[in-house]
């Protein structure tokens, strides 16, 4: 598969995530759109790792080029899992205090 197809697919997913963050007001959906953007980046990293492997394997049959990118994806997933647990705890606390999940109420932080 040409790498452009993967790049454009990832860009489309990423931009859908950005539009979701900009237009939705439910904080849980905003959070889910952030997860969507993280996954678009992961897909792009894996596609690039296979691209580099395809280039390196021409010269060296046993080349392990591209392994690092897949481990980066693994670490991104690890950090995302930690981030989600803390983020959802913040959302639950926010809901307990205000009985709303609207992002707009967060503007009271500026006062």
């Amino acid at each position: 598969m040409p790498i452009q197809y993967y790049i454009i697919l990832s860009l489309a997913l990423f931009c859908i995530g950005i539009v979701g963050v900009l237009v939705r007001r439910n904080v849980i959906i905003v959070f889910m759109c952030i997860e969507l953007m993280l996954n678009a980046v992961n897909l792009l990293l894996v596609a690039f790792s296979k691209m580099h492997h395809a280039i390196a394997v021409v010269n060296d049959k046993a080349s392990a080029a591209g392994t690092d990118a897949q481990l980066f994806v693994f670490f991104i997933m690890v950090v995302a899992a930690a981030e989600v647990s803390v983020g959802l705890a913040i959302i639950v606390m926010m809901y307990r205090n205000t009985h709303s999940v609207d992002v707009n109420f967060l503007n009271r932080l500026k006062n």
Partner: peptide
């Protein structure tokens, strides 16, 4: 341009 991401082959994953 013209770069290919290999599918179905390669054992790095």
């Amino acid at each position: 341009a013209g770069k290919i991401a290999e599918v179905k082959t390669g054992d790095i994953g």
